[in-house]
Amino acid sequence: MERKKRICDVCGEREGVITVVQYIGGVRKKLFVCLECAAKVGVDEQLADEQVVIESAQELEHTCPMCGWKLKDVVDTGMLGCPNCYEEFYDEVVPLLEHFHGRGCLKRNVSIALRKDLTTLQWQLRKAVDEERFEDAAYFRDLIKKVEDEIMDDEIKSLLNMDDDDDLEEFMGV
């Protein structure tokens, strides 16, 4: 789909390519500018021109259960609070990622779908230990072991280019 061209908010001449955020008199203002003007106004806080329109105040209060970061914080800072935020605010983050890394960048990676589980489990394990919930901790530790094994299998499989579990079992001699 061809995007409609938009003129730079600052010079009003060249084609705008990037949205920058400026604090003018304490008010947060978004400007859509060309590269030349981006140099003048500063590009410290870049946001995608495809920036998701946040519809309601309620949505802005959506909170990541792991770190307490709100969608509002993501919008204000352009940053996320923790690894889990990438799951929690996935829909909002995708346009940002595509803006910075190119359209379709997320499809480039055919990778270990399990790593994310691992990150979350490690988190849960650490919380459980901190809060002295030792039964939970043991449970998470077991799960982590399982996921790690699966990742290992996955890596071996991709190494050997085997799609089938049977091939793998045969290879491992089970």
Binding site: M66, C67, G68, W69, D73, T77, M79, L80, G81, C82, P83, L118, T119, Q122, W123, L125, R126
Partner: peptide, 9 residues
């Protein structure tokens, strides 16, 4: 892994 990023920690 398992920790918040700097801003939120």
């Amino acid at each position: 892994a398992g920790y918040s990023f700097c801003l939120a920690m």
